[in-house]
Design a protein around this nucleic acid. Structure first.
Lengths: 252, 252
DNA sequence: CCTCACTGTGTATGTCGCATACTGTGAATG
DNA sequence: CATTCACAGTATGCGACATACACAGTGAGG
């Protein structure tokens, strides 16, 4: 399986990110690297949220005009791919080399959660296709390292990784929507306007459980303090339990 | 807990959706209902995808000019809330009234999955806050009905519902991104461009597991046929197992 | 019954975002 | 040394969301 040239040439941003040499370039040298573009976009997103990321704002961050940014990425979707790759960074090389498969996989899961918590906007980036960028591949490679020694087939391994990262993403996304998590990754008390609005219009006859439950949950003191962490732990543990069943079944 | 007037008045679209009476209206009667708006927006999204939903396209679907739509919703975010509520519809009244808690909860989970599969765009709607709309509340109420008889507290019940719907959403979202699912909800074979691109640039020395795994997964025949359903089943079962542990613990 | 406040609809317009097309400039090839 | 080509900038188009205003007709109050 040696590297081969695909029928459709790689998009420029992927060539840049993977360091593909393109022979004798004639004109002036690029003033920025694709890493510069990623770093600038991540900086904008960390500061102003994903909504603050526009071609104009990122270009300004780089000291370029809006259109010059298109020398590096052909569309905003490509910019998103570069941002994500930059935010993910390289996984710790020793992440999945020691311990049981479960220890390795849980370490991988918590590392991903930590990265996403540092850049919560990563879970709100609209994606049309999975990014084929280097750091994304490195995280997958590291994740696959967890299963060495097990008898899971390739499909099961990929599915397990997707399940874990998918849960982490979903948990952060829900926490953002519900107001338990700020755009900077701080844990919050949660928005009260939702139950308040409901109380004013929902008929107790039609929504007895919902209204009672909302009252009970609100009456509880400090349920949100480590709500985020508790739920994250529960989800990871539950999914690992499920995977363990498969590992068991495959070993016989 | 009788309905009370909140300090901040409800946004208009919520008043319309909940049927709040607003006293003597003086001018002409509205030519459309909020249900009309929801139905039109859902029709556009089902036909052209969420990207095809604009104030202009929805207004045109209703036979209105773009700006007249703002008589019913104050912003596009509000239109999203109306669309979602319309797409969800009313849950089957008997959804969570028969069987064990696990039977009821699984039925609820599969009903939600079916609805979201009918309108896959529901998982890609950008949400700033949880929608306080009637059908959303009805689905929550129905979901809570699953736990009658268990000793889970309110927080655990809400969290469990969030976990299930969150997984369903994430699974559909990933399936869309990976190309296993079309915008119309059809199951597909999945995109090959991702592994193809990787093969052309990834060094086998650095990505041995990823490249070997991708090769193995692609060599497998018909892994995608019921891939979507298989993974959905696995996820639901795993999460229910996890909740069962909590139900057990709470019962003692 | 008449007046006028108010509401639904339409037109005009502003702002902002993404993206194509083109110009200018300078470096490296041959 | 001339040609070629890539980087950066300028001009411009298009479509999206949204505010401001004009018009028209309904219905409450005197």
């Amino acid at each position: 399986m040696a590297p081969t040239t695909p029928p459709v040439p790689l998009p420029r941003y992927l060539q840049l990110m993977w360091g593909v040499e393109t022979g004798g370039r004639r004109g002036p040298k690029p003033g920025r690297t694709i890493q510069d573009i990623g770093a600038a976009a991540v900086a904008v997103a960390d500061r102003d949220g994903l909504a603050g990321v526009s071609m104009k704002s990122v270009a300004a961050e780089l000291g370029l005009t809006t259109m010059s940014l298109y020398r590096y990425v052909d569309s905003k979707d490509e910019l998103y791919a570069v941002m994500l790759d930059t935010a993910y960074g390289r996984p710790d090389p020793g992440l999945t080399t020691r311990g049981s498969w479960r220890t390795r996989l849980e370490r991988w899961a918590r590392a991903i959660a930590a990265v996403r918590l540092e850049h919560p906007w990563t879970v709100t980036v609209p994606l049309g296709e999975p990014p084929a960028t280097p750091n994304t591949a490195r995280w997958t490679e590291a994740g696959l390292g967890s299963f060495t020694g097990t008898k899971l087939d390739a499909q099961q391994r990929f599915s397990s990784l997707l399940l874990i990262d998918g849960f982490v993403q979903q948990h952060i996304r829900q926490s953002l929507t519900l107001g338990f998590l700020g755009e900077g990754g701080q844990t919050l008390a949660g928005s009260d306007s939702y139950p308040e609005n409901l109380y004013s219009v929902a008929d107790p006859k039609e929504f007895p459980l919902l209204l009672a439950g909302a009252g009970e949950a609100l009456a509880d003191e400090a349920p949100d303090d480590d709500f985020f962490a508790t739920e994250l732990d529960f989800g990871i543990r539950t999914i690992l339990d499920g995977i363990a069943v498969q590992v068991e079944a495959a070993s016989r």
